[in-house]
Computed example of a mutant assay.
Amino acid sequence: MAKSSTKAAAAKPAAKAAAPKKAAAPAAETSEKIAKTQIIDMVADRTSLNKKQAGESVAVMLDVVVEALKDGKSVGLPGLGTFSVAKTAARQGVRPGTSEKITIPAGKKVRFKVASTLKGNL
């Protein structure tokens, strides 16, 4: 029994040491990424809209951007940058597991060019 109590005692300090790391992780995530709900809260705070209206506004804005990109149009957001659709050519690739050569088909991808005003302020 003495061995199991020693293991339990050894496990407790490790648990205490791990707890501060978990507390620090959300703070790091908050500074690195802003979620859609946080954007909605910010819009609601800075405007006369309530959270439901702000959520609808943000959702509609994002839908409009996505629809425009699907139609092949570019979307300019002053002070932020420009989203555009670029065609990619077919190319040769290698399958990682087997090293077999494969052809990657032509497609499209979204590009983003940062506005010079934002780039200068970073």
Rank of each mutant, 00 (worst) to 15 (best):
A2P: 12
S4L: 15
S5Q: 13
T6N: 13
A9D: 12
A9S: 13
A10V: 06
A10P: 01
A11R: 14
K12F: 01
K12H: 02
P13L: 12
P13M: 08
A14E: 07
K16H: 11
A17I: 12
A19H: 04
A19W: 03
A19G: 03
A19D: 05
P20G: 08
K22C: 13
K22P: 00
K22I: 15
K22W: 10
E29A: 05
E29C: 03
T30P: 02
T30N: 10
S31Y: 14
E32C: 10
E32F: 12
E32Y: 10
E32W: 07
K33W: 13
K33D: 14
K33Q: 15
K33L: 14
K33G: 07
K33M: 14
A35W: 12
K36R: 13
T37F: 00
I39V: 15
I39Y: 06
I39P: 01
I40V: 15
D41R: 00
D41C: 02
M42R: 15
V43R: 01
A44Y: 01
D45I: 04
R46I: 02
T47D: 10
L49Q: 06
N50M: 14
K51Q: 06
K51C: 06
Q53M: 03
Q53C: 02
A54C: 05
S57M: 09
S57L: 07
S57N: 08
S57H: 05
S57C: 08
V60M: 07
V60C: 05
M61P: 09
L62M: 07
D63W: 00
D63E: 08
D63A: 05
D63G: 04
V64I: 05
V65T: 13
V66L: 09
E67N: 12
E67V: 03
E67H: 11
K70V: 14
K70W: 05
G72S: 07
G72C: 06
K73Q: 12
K73Y: 09
S74R: 13
S74D: 14
V75K: 06
G76D: 04
G76A: 12
L77S: 03
P78Y: 04
P78A: 12
T82R: 03
T82W: 00
S84P: 07
S84A: 13
T88V: 11
A89E: 11
A89D: 11
R91F: 13
Q92A: 10
G93F: 13
R95E: 01
R95D: 00
G97I: 09
S99P: 08
E100T: 08
E100L: 10
E100R: 08
K101C: 05
K101D: 04
I102H: 06
T103H: 00
T103W: 00
A106C: 09
A106N: 09
A106E: 04
G107F: 00
G107L: 04
K108F: 11
K109C: 09
K109Y: 12
V110E: 09
V110W: 14
R111E: 10
F112T: 06
F112A: 06
F112H: 06
K113D: 12
V114E: 14
A115W: 02
A115D: 10
G120P: 08
G120R: 12
L122P: 01
